[in-house]
Structure formats: C-alpha cells, structure tokens
Lab assay of single mutants.
Amino acid sequence: MTGIVKWFNADKGFGFITPDDGSKDVFVHFSAIQNDGYKSLDEGQKVSFTIESGAKGPAAGNVTSL
C-alpha cells in the first residue's frame, strides 16, 4: 500500500505514515526503511509499505520511497 509520511523523528528513529486509503495512521520504525545509508523519512514524503504485526499493534514494514 502507499501513503504519506505524517512525521518522522530521526533522533528517536520512528514516526507515522498516513495511508492513502484513509485508514488509521501506521507506526513506522527506522529498521523498516529499505534504503541504503541513513534510514530516515521526511514529512510529506510518498512511500510504499506493507502492514506488519508489531508488538504494540500494526506497524509499517518494507518501507520504500516513491
């Protein structure tokens, strides 16, 4: 699925993605970002991701920028 990064705190390594389908915002951890180098996201960035079952509920996985 796709969405827009609502916010991401690079110091803490997590944030939230707002899915394009209008569903509830999804937690994203830096370890789910699939790019080389520094793993961070920018507010407003368009991303593709999967929904994984995290310890505290749904979380984004396999996050790639579009």
Score class of each variant (00 low, 15 high):
1 M>Y: 14
3 G>N: 00
3 G>W: 01
3 G>I: 01
3 G>H: 01
4 I>R: 09
4 I>T: 15
4 I>C: 09
5 V>I: 08
5 V>N: 01
6 K>F: 04
6 K>Y: 04
7 W>P: 00
8 F>M: 02
8 F>L: 02
9 N>Y: 06
9 N>I: 06
10 A>R: 15
10 A>M: 09
11 D>S: 14
12 K>I: 10
13 G>K: 05
13 G>V: 01
13 G>Y: 02
15 G>R: 00
15 G>N: 00
16 F>H: 03
16 F>V: 06
16 F>D: 00
17 I>D: 00
17 I>G: 00
17 I>L: 07
17 I>T: 00
17 I>Y: 00
19 P>I: 05
19 P>L: 07
20 D>K: 04
20 D>Y: 07
21 D>R: 06
22 G>C: 08
23 S>P: 05
23 S>N: 08
24 K>Q: 13
24 K>N: 11
26 V>W: 03
26 V>L: 10
26 V>E: 01
26 V>R: 02
26 V>T: 03
26 V>C: 06
26 V>Q: 02
27 F>A: 03
27 F>K: 02
27 F>S: 02
28 V>P: 01
28 V>Q: 00
28 V>T: 03
28 V>L: 07
30 F>D: 03
32 A>K: 08
32 A>Y: 04
33 I>G: 02
33 I>Q: 03
35 N>Q: 13
36 D>A: 14
36 D>Y: 11
37 G>T: 10
37 G>A: 09
38 Y>T: 11
38 Y>D: 10
38 Y>F: 13
38 Y>A: 13
38 Y>P: 14
39 K>S: 07
40 S>M: 13
41 L>T: 02
41 L>S: 01
41 L>I: 07
41 L>P: 02
42 D>W: 14
43 E>I: 15
43 E>W: 13
43 E>R: 15
45 Q>E: 13
45 Q>K: 05
46 K>C: 10
46 K>R: 12
47 V>I: 05
47 V>L: 03
47 V>F: 01
49 F>Q: 00
49 F>W: 02
50 T>K: 08
50 T>C: 11
51 I>M: 11
52 E>H: 10
52 E>V: 15
52 E>W: 11
52 E>M: 13
53 S>Y: 13
54 G>N: 11
55 A>T: 14
55 A>L: 14
55 A>F: 13
55 A>E: 14
55 A>H: 12
56 K>Q: 09
57 G>M: 06
57 G>N: 07
57 G>S: 07
57 G>W: 10
58 P>G: 05
59 A>P: 02
59 A>H: 15
59 A>C: 13
60 A>P: 01
60 A>Q: 01
61 G>Q: 14
61 G>A: 14
63 V>S: 01
63 V>L: 05
63 V>N: 01
63 V>P: 01
64 T>D: 05
64 T>Y: 12
64 T>I: 14
